[in-house]
Write a protein that binds this DNA or RNA. Structure first.
Lengths: 134, 134
DNA sequence: AAGGCACGCAACACCGTTTGTTACGTGAGC
DNA sequence: GCTCACGTAACAAACGGTGTTGCGTGCCTT
């Protein structure tokens, strides 16, 4: 994956965790499986922890674990936890001086928000426990 | 605007052109109004020309003009002409080895394609002549 | 109590993409 | 023929994202 790499990493990791929720995984293990760096893993998973999807523990038998039942975590939860809007995000907050630009912006923003809602709604239809091929 | 800057520039320019379709505009004029560079304008508008939305002429009274009636050009036409998918694009084409990843990718891709269609459908509902505040 | 392990976090380098800029060529018109 | 405006390539600059290192903190094992 390339774009949405954070979302991909998060979904991939959580999907695996859904297969064996009690098992504790270190960021090193996850990083190796995902072909990336432990720090990157902690960065992404930290957001999920802040959203209450994961818990992390330090120390010898530390690592990461699901904070909720896999059936209760939907793809939308993960998407929202990362707080990066795929369709809406990236709009600057500068008010356009040009009236045409203003009308245009309003129209486009309306469409994007609608589409964003659609995306979230569709993502909320599947949980991370459903996604596994096992 | 920031992200989707190409789309913003394209829509903004075409919306203005819709107000006076017969008038010829130079890339320098457009660039000044949009706060950017003439070359950037030509780059973006070139794609629209390739899609048959605009025509350009060289020489003294040269510049850019709509190639179709403003009522016939929808926001979706502009979006598609730029060929940059907002929601779908960016996915790498590498086949995932991990089975969980594969199942996940399939599921997410399905949702994204659905949302992309929704976006195009919504954008096709308004033409560039409707968007003006005049 | 000490050492090791794993997370938490900040700082920095690196890379790819996007945007801006310069330069030069081409065609149309005065 | 000269000017104007597009067409395109090449290059520089800015930005965002990722990878990496380093150090601190807490917890567990011995």
């Amino acid at each position: 994956m390339k774009r949405n790499s954070r979302l991909s990493l998060a979904l991939h990791t959580l999907s695996h965790m859904a297969g064996d929720p009690s098992r504790m995984r270190t960021s090193a293990d996850i990083a190796e499986h995902a072909g990336t760096n432990p720090v990157v893993v902690r960065r992404v998973l930290g957001r999920l922890r802040k959203a209450g999807l994961l818990t992390s523990e330090k120390g010898h038998s530390g690592g990461w674990r699901l904070a909720q039942a896999p059936e209760d975590i939907t793809l939308a939860d993960v998407y929202l936890a990362l707080d990066e809007r795929l369709v809406t995000g990236g709009d600057s907050d500068e008010a356009p001086a040009c009236s045409v630009e203003k009308a245009l912006h309003k129209r486009v923003t309306g469409v994007l928000e609608d589409v964003e809602q659609r995306l979230i709604q569709r993502l909320s239809e599947t949980s991370i426990s459903e996604v596994r091929g096992n």
